[in-house]
């Protein structure tokens, strides 16, 4: 059996849950709204949901770009470490300025410097750097998980609101039809 609508219509991270309407007639009388103001209210809600969805999608894109970046960092640190353990130097072409490359020989490197942001760069041993990057990677993945759950919740609210709009609209059309057939039969 499905959970009752009232228990599901809570909120998540400040996103209010959409109210499921059991019966349009009762909903309108209870909220004291006529059809057009009820529709206007629901449309506004829908717009708000869409706005939040856009924000969350932007965050999702950021995180999804960040994760491969961290993986790239881990890869180069691992390469440096492997080279050190093999007693070889890493020879690499690197960009000195846009489109200009020069050759570098990196040997006996026990450490790397990580740019921490806020104009701070810190020197780490390769092991420490790997640990830190791993932690960052896990954090980013965890945030992405949470974000995806938020998005799912939000999408449910969007769907509920869309369905409610369609139902209020259909109910109104139905009522009008009843009224017009009623008046047509009374005065032919």
């Amino acid at each position: 059996m499905a959970a009752s609508p009232s228990s599901a219509a809570t909120e998540r991270r400040g996103i209010p849950g959409a109210q499921f309407v059991e019966d349009v007639q009762t909903y309108l009388t209870q909220s004291g709204l006529d059809v057009s103001s009820a529709l206007a209210f629901l449309q506004e809600r829908l717009q708000q949901y869409k706005f939040v969805e856009m924000k969350l999608l932007a965050q999702q894109r950021d995180l999804q770009a960040k994760i491969p970046d961290i993986e790239k960092c881990l890869e180069i640190v691992a390469t440096l470490e492997a080279k050190k353990n093999a007693g070889e130097a890493l020879i690499a072409d690197f960009e000195v300025s846009e489109g200009i490359y020069s050759r570098a020989r990196v040997e006996d490197n026990d450490s790397v410097c990580l740019w921490l942001g806020a104009n701070v760069m810190l020197e780490y041993s390769c092991e420490e750097a790997t640990d830190l990057l791993q932690k960052n990677l896990q954090n980013a993945k965890a945030s992405l998980e949470v974000l995806l759950t938020d998005l799912q919740f939000l999408r449910d609210q969007v769907t509920i609101t869309q369905v409610t709009i369609a139902r209020v609209y259909n109910w109104d059309v139905h009522q009008r039809r009843i009224r017009s057939t009623a008046s047509a039969s009374t005065d032919p």
Partner: peptide, 25 residues
């Protein structure tokens, strides 16, 4: 996604859940 001809079909919470599920899928 929803379009009706104005006919009255009772939409239950369970129906709504199914529609939600479909939308997410």
């Amino acid at each position: 996604m929803q379009q009706g001809a104005g006919s009255e079909t009772v939409v239950t919470w369970e129906d709504q859940l199914n529609i939600n599920r479909f939308s997410k899928l």
